[in-house]
Design a protein around this nucleic acid. Sequence first.
DNA 1: CCCCGGTTGGCAACCGATTGACAATCGGGG
DNA 2: CCCCGATTGTCAATCGGTTGCCAACCGGGG
Lengths: 346, 346
Amino acid sequence: MSDSTVDSATGRRGRKSGAPTIYDIAELAGVNPSTVSRALNQPGRVSAATEARIRAAAAELDFHINPLARALPTGRTNTLAVVVADITNPVVFGIIRGAERAASRAGFTLIIAESQESGSLEAATIDRLIPSVDGIVLATTRLPDDEITRIAARKPLVTINRAMDGVISVAPDVRPGITQLVDHLHGLGHRTVAFVSGPGRSWISERRWEALLDAARALGMSVFEIGPNSPTIEGGVRAFERVEASGATSVVAYNDLVALGLIKAAREKGIDVPRDLSVAGFDDIFGAEFISPPLTTVRADLLGAGAVAVQELFRKIGVDAAVADSEELTTELVARESTGPLPTAR
Amino acid sequence: MSDSTVDSATGRRGRKSGAPTIYDIAELAGVNPSTVSRALNQPGRVSAATEARIRAAAAELDFHINPLARALPTGRTNTLAVVVADITNPVVFGIIRGAERAASRAGFTLIIAESQESGSLEAATIDRLIPSVDGIVLATTRLPDDEITRIAARKPLVTINRAMDGVISVAPDVRPGITQLVDHLHGLGHRTVAFVSGPGRSWISERRWEALLDAARALGMSVFEIGPNSPTIEGGVRAFERVEASGATSVVAYNDLVALGLIKAAREKGIDVPRDLSVAGFDDIFGAEFISPPLTTVRADLLGAGAVAVQELFRKIGVDAAVADSEELTTELVARESTGPLPTAR
DNA sequence: CCCCGGTTGGCAACCGATTGACAATCGGGG
DNA sequence: CCCCGATTGTCAATCGGTTGCCAACCGGGG
């Protein structure tokens, strides 16, 4: 045994942050560090008197446990990641908030990562994050299926608005909202509706299209798809020409941003919405009610989707925390003024 | 190598996550784990040949370093936290994005925490986060000064839009934008302007008010403050009555949300913006150009503010990464249609 | 042929917790 | 009075890296 001189006398050398540790508590309370650990998180494992002494010492030192140090032996980080393609996309807003609430309610920390619309950057970011989190929510992913499968094999993972075999998925049911929307348009006299779709590979775009198709057919309306398009205002602007050429009297956009673009392009051509053309979107993003005209849209419970995604992750990793109010995720029509009666003459 | 031997190391004994470690690499490369560590992050410390062998082994195992394990001995987590009061506030969007970009450019991970407008929750969240991060950005804090000081003593900390002694602060200079705005209003014929301020304790609200006061006085305009108000649409709605009573022909709101509320309330009373009343805001939030009427506003470089905040943190913790394009944060007027010529009769 | 300085790699002690195994202690029943 | 089981607390190994210190090794000059 080589005598380690520096040790006992000076105390722990070069403490980096000065944050108190369980060793400090142990010393103050006159017990062994492991007893401190047990007192603090295995209720009943140590005597009430000892526990009280330890808690008092912890309070006195303003002790906060170091989650990193805890994570090492336990393998549990109490952290979840939400990956989004674009933080400024209003859609991820509600998802993040719902997830954040749910996570913090269970004492979990949430990491938000932005992939900046790049699949490879997204994969790299996730690789970096994997060891530090207990689970991953893919809110608006750009990753190909096989890559998602690969990641899901390494960490609990939930996707939002994108279904895949063998991967837990959370998605509000689009049919109620779309059925309401189509009824609404039909009631206004429209008999033909165009769907300005999203990116070619978007799972949710296809779901919306299918639901629209079914609902429109059920009412005997003529319906067709225009796309694919970028899911942005610019995408809507660019799609407008084809909408106009199609002669449709009503148009359902992939999302509110695209709807905004359509309205903008229409205005520039002197076509009035909703007098000459009815436009509806999806998501009911912030501001949808303030624009001119206020946008008719199908709202999804994004907050709920974020919460349910976290809930599913908790279920998978064995945390029992009732965190989402409901698991019924649905959609509903929000009728405003961008849709109106059939144009009498065009 | 199409024939990849089905991984001889089938079951690493009871390892919890199965993620490869430097020990696995060491074994595969026939060296000591410490040599692996050195090869991977102390360039030149090991021979080129050994390093190559180690890197090959790492690649073969698809090794990703465990940031938690690294953080323990080094005390460096490569993680930054951004704390916001309300994730749905459009203002924090740009800040988060700017910070995210800057952080990830330097290989740092960003944690977003929401305090849900509660000071005590914010303090608790930060206490929980402190051991896991290298620095903290307070984007829209609800914390009292002394609490901020307390935290700043424990971790590098930067505030945005709030200055305090002894704490690094980042804030775009409001004067250029406000001067432009006042010139703009004056040029339209307005001689009286009301400021609908933000929360009583808001540092940035006071800065805006002071700048507005100076600029208006310089032009001989009459100017007064109405407040405090909640920084929301609802806050604007509630403040409208007092604006109307004041007889001001132009009003500058604490932010775009408040401006929106004012416009909404005005419309409900049959008062047209901008014909009867000119309204301007701050921040140029998403949607400001689509609402009706498109909002005149003072835009701040929020993206830049987020990036500079991270830059300052890096400086403080000794990371040299040029990450922000510029450190000059300014503001500018974006004139749209919610401001117009002086009402001829009122 | 030996000595020397510079490389290169290994050993072992940490970082701050957790936890299985075990020892000490205590009260109570026989 | 002794033994036994239950309770309480201690020891030491461990998670996955990092790093100071030192030994082995290298080639070259004297």
